[in-house]
């Protein structure tokens, strides 16, 4: 079999998709510093805390997530969920960014000042 392993069109196909994603990521999404952390459990807003003040917030349902607000960032400080995806997300601070813990159905979303949710998610 002397056929080519990768054809140029395959590379172009992949590169175009990746390029479009990078462009969207860098230009279309707001990178403004967020103002409020909105904590949701199963879609319902449980709390809204300002990012300026250091705080801790715990959400317990199927599992327990302990969120920590520190220096304008939110991160998951502790979780007992099985996959620890939320913990691995690390600290987020940009408006529109979020941390999700699917096993616990919990999420925290960063929103801009004045709660312009729809402007952020577009």
């Amino acid at each position: 079999m002397k056929d080519k392993l990768i054809k140029p069109s395959d590379i172009v196909f992949t590169a175009v998709i990746v390029a479009v994603c990078i462009l969207i990521w860098f230009f279309a999404l707001p990178k403004a510093q967020g103002g409020v952390a909105v904590f949701r459990l199963d879609g319902e807003i449980m709390a809204e805390l300002p990012l300026q003040e250091n705080a801790e917030y715990e959400m317990s349902a199927a599992y327990t997530n302990l969120f920590e607000i520190k220096d304008g960032c939110v991160r998951v400080a502790y979780t007992d969920c099985p996959n620890h995806q939320c913990e691995k997300t690390g600290a987020v601070s940009a408006a529109g960014a979020s941390i999700v813990c699917a096993p616990n159905r919990a999420s925290v979303t960063i929103e801009g000042e004045g709660g312009q949710v729809d402007a952020v998610t577009g």
Binding site: V18, C21, L29, D42, S98, C101, R105, T109, T121
Partner: peptide, 22 residues
């Protein structure tokens, strides 16, 4: 799962990485 559409924020990054790993 979380009933929170805002979590779709990372979609462009995940699509890009899906393309690369694919």
């Amino acid at each position: 799962f979380t009933s929170t559409p805002q979590t779709a924020y990372y979609l462009p990054v995940l699509i890009g990485m899906g393309a690369v790993s694919g």
